[in-house]
Computed example of a mutant assay.
Amino acid sequence: MGYRKDQLLARLQELKIDFTCYDHPVVLTVEEQAKHVGHLGGALSKNLLLKDKKHRLYVVSALAETKVDMKILSQRLGLGKGGLRMAPEENLLQVLQVPLGCVTPFALINESASAVSLLLDKGFKSKQTCYFHPLTNDVTIALSSSNLDKFIISIGKQPAYVNFEDAPAVGKDSPPDLAHLVPSGVPNSSEQPVENTTPTNVPHQNNVPKATEVKAKPKVQSKGPETSQSKVDKPTNATSVDNFVNDVFDIISPLFLSEALKKLDIKKEELSSIIDGIRGRAAPDLESIARSLKSASYTSGFHAGFETMLNRGLSGRPSRN
């Protein structure tokens, strides 16, 4: 079991790290968090868990206003243009041992995250106070970057600050400037399935029958028209955040290209590179929003199902009073 909030705060006190806690309702985005602590004047952060093609993991912690271009960052790490993508939810739960909305540098306190690389925004160094969630998204703690460094050193890592908006050339005579930050290993549980994980602030699923794994059956072509029920039963890529984001860009890009060619004096090839740039810059934020919506939908659905179960009983019969 990973660290809990109270254990983390106790550890910070042992390290004589000065911090301030602010309780608030559960938040899933930086915008929601800003409503509760934004007026205090500190630096809000956005935190991403990224994965490369060799399953190595990276936590990118940046100021809320910093633009993180995943393609440029991938090149600077020596991974090529498409070497980074958003890590799946299983990695949050199994490696960082936190649910969606709770990724921060503090999650690296868990032993399971020892092989995860941490990249910090250079902008934190110029801020008097920085805000992060302490493993749960109904609390925000404020501390200085020097105290954050003290915590990072205490877990056996060296703070690595990066200017994410730099775009240095990478080539034969210009080696990747961040290659030294690529992890040397893969977390042991980065590819393991997730079992019995309860999201933050969701009731424990006591006495709820476990879902059984159903093996996919060979697809049989239907002779008649497809019914709405058959559409629901088919597996879909809509549950994949990565595929959802790609679908959004696949829809928007041709429309943008068509309209731009009509109204702007610019070549199609140049527009394509502009679209790629927009895609690289917008993808992390769009993926973060999609994951937040997915988490919110899951939480709402779970509550609804849990209430129905309490009202009707596990066997489907009305509960006895």
Rank of each mutant, 00 (worst) to 15 (best):
L57W: 05
K268C: 12
F244M: 07
L63K: 15
K35N: 05
F106L: 06
A10N: 14
E226S: 08
A169G: 07
G82F: 15
I278N: 07
A296T: 01
D285I: 06
T299W: 00
L92I: 06
L96N: 10
K127E: 15
I153C: 06
D149Q: 02
P99T: 08
G78T: 13
I266E: 07
P254F: 15
H55R: 14
S297Q: 09
F132D: 07
D276F: 01
S300Q: 10
I72V: 15
V245Y: 03
T212G: 01
L143M: 12
F256K: 05
A87T: 07
P168Q: 05
D242T: 14
N243S: 14
N137W: 02
T136E: 11
E195T: 12
L12Q: 07
L73R: 03
V170G: 01
F164Q: 08
N246A: 14
A142F: 00
G280K: 02
P199M: 02
N201S: 13
N188Q: 15
G38M: 11
R4E: 15
P134K: 01
L57R: 07
V27N: 01
Q158M: 05
P168L: 03
Q221Y: 06
D242G: 03
P176T: 10
D166M: 12
L8Y: 13
N137F: 01
F302H: 12
L271E: 08
R317Q: 14
E226C: 11
Q205K: 06
L79N: 12
P25N: 10
K215Y: 04
K231V: 11
L178T: 06
G301S: 11
P88A: 10
Y58C: 03
R56I: 05
K122R: 13
F244Q: 09
A211H: 06
A216G: 05
L15I: 10
K262H: 11
S222W: 03
P176I: 07
L9Q: 13
H180W: 00
M1Q: 14
P176V: 09
V162S: 03
S230C: 06
S189I: 02
H24S: 09
T200Q: 07
L93K: 14
E226A: 04
K16W: 07
N91V: 13
T299M: 04
V245C: 12
D138Y: 04
L264D: 04
T197N: 09
T227A: 02
R76V: 05
V208H: 02
K215V: 10
L93T: 09
N321Q: 02
L255E: 14
F256V: 15
K46G: 03
H39Q: 11
V30D: 04
D69W: 05
Q94M: 07
I17E: 08
N311D: 13
Q205H: 07
K54Q: 11
G185Y: 00
S184V: 03
L57N: 04
M309E: 08
I72C: 04
D285Q: 12
E213Q: 03
D173P: 00
S273K: 15
